[in-house]
């Protein structure tokens, strides 16, 4: 069943592209002695830096939380204008959709560079970068949830004599809340990783520590920061699951 001429040709073709891409990107086996020497400098982690790593982790958490929660608060009302079933008219729908696409199309790292220049170094630049990018992302995702919401409760709310904004509030929002939270916590998790990268350009947090110590070959510090980063991501994932379970 699997070994027919067409499948073999497809497999050979994909394999050829893998080889071509590997040559183009210089993929080759990592010398084992290099790997061992490098790993030895990573371990054990430098536990003396725990307090510093903890306070930087909290800044990263604050940046990710503030950027995404503000984005969520702005994205929810905007998404009702960007959904074809709740938007007042086609003009508003297309304008808001285009605006969200524009916000999404600028990578947060570019926004971060822009805000570092505009308002100076520090976590605030990262908050703004994450906020703006996530308004675009969450706005689109929530608009799609609104469009696919069950029409029944909306029709019922409408039939009770409530206006369009109340139909959105009572006929749509309660239905989509679990999925909105799901998207939010995923974006929160992504924002933690983003704020690390933004730290590389001077936006503070554990990302900046990681970058500085990597530049100065303090790999024992780096390994500690990586552990904290993993802890942060696991914490947000568990928090998201807990909140979703409570709400669903």
């Amino acid at each position: 069943m699997w070994f027919n001429k067409k499948n073999i040709l497809i497999t050979v073709f994909i394999f050829g592209i893998v080889i071509w891409s590997s040559i183009g990107t210089g993929v080759r086996p990592i010398p084992l002695d290099n790997f061992v020497a490098f790993s030895e400098r990573f371990f054990p982690p430098n536990w003396d830096r725990t307090n510093v790593a903890l306070s930087a982790s909290l800044i990263t958490l604050q940046v990710a939380f503030l950027g995404t929660i503000l984005a969520l608060l702005v994205a929810i009302p905007i998404s009702f204008l960007a959904a074809n079933n709740t938007s007042p008219n086609g003009y508003v729908y297309h304008t808001v959709r285009s605006m969200l696409s524009f916000l999404r199309s600028v990578p947060d790292i570019v926004l971060g560079l822009f805000f570092v220049v505009l308002i100076g170094l520090g976590p605030y630049a990262a908050v703004l970068a994450i906020f703006i990018h996530n308004v675009g992302v969450l706005g689109k995702l929530i608009a799609e949830l609104i469009e696919s919401a069950d029409k029944g409760p909306q029709e019922a709310v409408q039939s009770m004599g409530l206006c369009k904004s109340m139909v959105a509030l009572y006929g749509v929002l309660p239905q989509i809340i679990p999925n909105v939270l799901s998207h939010y916590f995923y974006r929160f998790e992504v924002a933690i990783r983003t704020s690390l990268i933004l730290g590389f350009i001077g936006a503070g947090g554990i990302g900046q520590l990681l970058f500085n110590d990597f530049q100065t070959f303090r790999y024992d510090n780096v390994s500690l920061y990586v552990l904290f980063i993993m802890g942060l991501v696991v914490f947000v994932d568990m928090l998201g699951s807990y909140v979703r379970n409570r709400v669903i």
Binding site: D150, G152, P153, E155, A156, V157, Y170, G171, P174, Q175, I177, P178
Partner: peptide, 10 residues
């Protein structure tokens, strides 16, 4: 309505 059309989760 046939499908009751209540707001779920409430």
């Amino acid at each position: 309505f046939q499908q009751f059309n209540l707001v779920p989760r409430l």
